[in-house]
Amino acid sequence: MAETAVRRAPTVVTRVKKALAPLPWIGPAVLLIGVVVLWPVVVMVWSSFQRIRRTGIVVGSNGTDNYKKLFDEPDFVAVLWNTVVWVLVVVAITLVLSLFLAQLFNQHFPGRRFARWAMIVPWAASVFMTAVVFKWMLHETHGAINTLMVDLHLMDAGKDWLGRPSTAMPWMMAVAVFVSLPFTTYTLLAGLQTVPGEVYEAAKIDGASTWRTYLSITLPLLKPAILVAVVINLINVFNSFPIIWAMTNGGPGYETATTTVFMYQLKASDIGESAAMSVANFAMIIILVAFFLVVSRNKETDR
C-alpha cells in the first residue's frame, strides 16, 4: 500500500513537471499572444453577433443578422472574387520572381552589398507611401511613368491607369508584388545560405546541369524557406489594405475592392456587419493557409 503510494506520487509529480516544463520557454510567447492578440479577437467575434449602432453603442444580440446582411450585399460576390484573384496572382508572381532574384543576388558580383541594400528599400518604406508614390507616378498628365512611356513612344498620350478596374487592378497587383519582393527574396536568400557548398560540389562531380542541380538540390533544400515565404505572403497579401486604399479606394464602386477593403468601408455604415466581414476574412485566410500547408505536406510525402 505504502509502496504503491510512493510509487504513484512521483509519477503524478513528474507528469505535472513534464507538462509544465515547456512553460519557462514558451510561456512568455503564449502570454503575449493570449493577452495582446486573442483578447481583441474575442471582442471582434463577439461584436460580429451584436447589433451596434453607428455611434458605437451596443444595443444587444443580433444573432446572425450581421452575417446575413453581409452575404446579401449586392457587391459581396464580386469583392470576394477580386480577393481570390488578388491573392493568388500576387503571391504566385512574387514567389517566382523572388526565386529568380534570390539566385541572382546570391551570385558573386561587384558591389553586391550595395545592390542588396538597394533591394531592401521597397521593404523599408511604408507600403502606404509606396502606393501613394505609385499613384503619383501614374497620374495621367504629370505622372513620371506616363511621361516616360510617352517619351519612349509606347503611347501617344498619358493614360488614366487607375481610373478603370481593368488597368487599375494589374497596376495595384504590380505594386503589391513590388513591395513583397524584398521580404520574399531576402527570406529565400537566407534559405540559400543554409545550403552547404559541398552539396553543389557533389552535384558538380556527378556532372549534373545547372538547371537540374537547381531543381533537384537547391529547390528541395529551399523548401522550408519557401514555405515560410508563401505562408507569410498569403497572409500579408490577403490582409493588404494600404495599396488599394491609397490607389483607388476600392473604386469605382467596389470594383477594385478586396474583402479587407470592404471590411473597412463597412465600418462607416455598420460596425456589426464590418465585424462579421472581419470574421469571414479570418475564416478565409485560415482556409487558404491550411489548404496550402496540406498541399505542400502531401507533396512532401509523395517524394
Binding site: V30, L31, V42, W46
Partner: peptide, 13 residues
C-alpha cells in the same frame, strides 16, 4: 494549453 491563453483573454474581456 490553448485554453490557457483563450480563457485568460475571455476573462479579461
Amino acid at each position: 494549453l490553448a485554453a490557457t491563453g483563450l480563457s485568460a483573454a475571455l476573462l479579461l474581456s
